[in-house]
């Protein structure tokens, strides 16, 4: 089944200058996202996972041009968003929406829910003025709130309800792609499950495409079709959900998966405990960025940057950036802890 490409990211780089020294010159850069490429197809959910500082949120923000990307292309239905003028970009903001982590911080506390929702419609001119209020109430019902709550203020809602308002706001302009940046991370599990189920129902109802940014691999496994693993601004592995969890190839992905505690006391598994911390993105390690913590690293890893590739044991579409996929698999290379 050939699916239509909705978003194509090519060679995306996002560097943040560090000012300092004499006359506040730029002395260096934080290489938050360093040359990544991937595609998202219509109707699917792609997740980006990784630890703090890996560049997953920066990627989401760069796609929406909430930060201007340093380099690279972000094609939405064939149009390069990164090359658009600000005015032209605004038209596309209707199609690409974002839901943030903190529902407390991302909704104006002095606006009623109705005005939060109608404001979004007004800016994007979605509906004639007299129909917006009715649409706002309808949206509240869609996300599981009640229409009479439209005149309440955000502080009158719980965290889970507020996240529903954030979702309603994103939906108010009929988007095609919604970027969920840690959208359920701040919620308790019982509420998180409610919101995850809602997102799935909405996807079906409105044929939405999601880019899901999260550090929680349980959530990611539940919601995604495909998963991108990032480490220090680079993609280390891309795969469909099943391959990633059952057949991970990159040593970092394996370590990450093995590090998550399993909520079952009888399931004890071998844990790969990585040494040390994530290095600084200001001066990332040469070659493979994971080599400073990788138990398989060799001299080659220190100099040569591994490209994403599909080894013979991997399904089409599954790619990992490691020089030694085959050797690790055959047992020829043993980990050195």
């Amino acid at each position: 089944m050939a699916k239509k490409e909705l978003l194509k990211v090519e060679g995306l780089k996002q560097y943040f200058p560090i000012k300092g020294g004499f006359l506040g010159r730029t002395t260096n850069y934080v290489k938050a996202v360093d040359d990544i490429s991937f595609s998202i197809f219509e109707g699917e959910t792609v997740s980006i996972v990784g630890e703090s500082g890996c560049g997953k949120s920066t990627t989401g923000r760069a796609i929406l041009r909430l930060e201007e990307p340093t380099e690279g292309k972000v094609e939405f239905r064939g149009v390069d968003l990164a090359g658009l003028s600000k005015r032209n970009m605004r038209k596309y903001r209707k199609d690409l929406q974002i839901i943030f982590q903190d529902p407390y911080a991302s909704i104006n506390p002095r606006q009623t829910v109705a005005s939060v929702l109608t404001e979004a419609m007004e800016i994007q001119k979605v509906l004639p003025t007299n129909k917006r209020r009715a649409r706002a109430e309808e949206l509240l019902e869609t996300v599981g709130l009640l229409p009479y709550q439209a005149d309440r203020f955000p502080h009158e809602f719980s965290g889970g309800q507020r996240q529903r308002i954030g979702i309603a706001r994103a939906l108010s302009v009929n988007p095609q792609l919604i970027i969920c940046d840690e959208a359920v991370s701040a919620l308790d599990v019982s509420i998180q499950a409610q919101v995850l189920n809602l997102l799935e129902e909405l996807q079906e109802e409105f044929q939405l495409t999601y880019l899901f940014i999260s550090h929680d691999l349980g959530v990611v496994r539940h919601i995604s079709d495909r998963i991108i693993v990032m480490y220090l601004g680079k993609i280390v592995e891309i795969a469909d959900k099943y391959s990633l969890f059952e057949n991970p190839k990159h040593p970092y992905t394996k370590a990450l998966l093995s590090a998550i505690p399993i909520p079952d006391p009888d399931k004890k598994k071998e844990r790969i405990v990585l040494k040390g911390d994530v290095p600084s993105p200001i001066d990332p390690p040469s070659g493979c960025r994971f080599h400073t913590r990788c138990p398989y690293a060799t001299a080659k890893c220190k100099v040569e940057v591994p490209e994403l590739r599909t080894a013979s044991s991997m399904k089409p579409g599954h790619e990992a950036a490691c020089h030694y996929i085959e050797e690790i698999e055959s047992g020829e290379k043993q980990p050195n802890y």
Binding site: I191, N197, D216, G218, H222, I260, K267
Partner: peptide, 13 residues
């Protein structure tokens, strides 16, 4: 609870 170690159909909130 969404699990990373097993496949779940739908979460039961």
């Amino acid at each position: 609870l969404p699990r990373h170690d097993i496949e779940q159909d739908k979460l039961q909130p």
